[in-house]
Design a binder for these strands. Sequence first.
DNA 1: TATTGTCCGAAAACTATTATCAGTATTAGT
DNA 2: ACTAATACTGATAATAGTTTTCGGACAATA
Lengths: 134, 134
Amino acid sequence: MQVERKHRMTRQRQVILEELRRVKTHPTADELYFIVRQKLPRISLATVYRNLDLLYQEGKILKLPAVDGVMRFDGTVTPHYHIRCTKCGRVSDVMLDVDLNLERKVARRTGYHVTGYVLEFEGVCPDCAPRTEH
Amino acid sequence: MQVERKHRMTRQRQVILEELRRVKTHPTADELYFIVRQKLPRISLATVYRNLDLLYQEGKILKLPAVDGVMRFDGTVTPHYHIRCTKCGRVSDVMLDVDLNLERKVARRTGYHVTGYVLEFEGVCPDCAPRTEH
DNA sequence: TATTGTCCGAAAACTATTATCAGTATTAGT
DNA sequence: ACTAATACTGATAATAGTTTTCGGACAATA
Ligand SMILES: [Zn+2]
Ligand SMILES: [Zn+2]
Ligand SMILES: [Zn+2]
Ligand SMILES: [Zn+2]
């Protein structure tokens, strides 16, 4: 029996979700905090964190694994991958269907019940790439 | 010409590397700190961190990406993948040769210069799996 | 509009990691 | 072996990101 939760739609939660869906930068909590403050100047950073976690629990947003120690959030929940610039930290979408289909093989090797995997590409974004001399 | 080596082989560095190579648990810095203190009771946690980073720079150990926010270390440097138990956090090796060869495709899609990727499997380890009733 | 209890802002607490610093000990050179 | 140079250590403080706490505010329901 699942415990019924009664989530309210507060102005804060609304704006946080709207802004996260609008931007395409996969912002950190702090970055989104600055974005949201343009509409809600009195909002608290803790409220941003709280709502991001709640929206994640509800499946309305994604949390990107904190590969570099900082958590990032994604308003696009349709399946896609990410590539992270190792110079500036920017995260871009990779609209490419990658089907690893390795779960059975990995399960046999490890004895784990495999539920998924984390896949994130690394590289240098066009802005950070050294200019070609000519 | 070879870069001049200025690193000293201290007892602390020696024991940290030995113990990390001995265990197969992919410990956090703190976990390794407790292990190493059995041989060097006066060692500092900062020394563990410092040496893990230095050994990593030297290519003698691996750092696992902090997918869940905590860094883990690996004394096995031969290429292999990992699977993390989502219940207890344990990380096990996956001795499976996976060559995705996706990097070129991703580069074409994103415009990034792709240098690598992070791949880590997720699942439930045998110890955490629910016992089958019969 | 009264009641209920979720939610908020502000601040403190917490956790993992890094930086600081005075004293120690490894290494190279004699 | 002795010495000098300096990488390194332990203890501690500082930092950064995130979570918790708590009294008051406010959305939801009737
Ligand atoms: Zn970049
Ligand atoms: Zn995305
Ligand atoms: Zn487990
Ligand atoms: Zn490993």
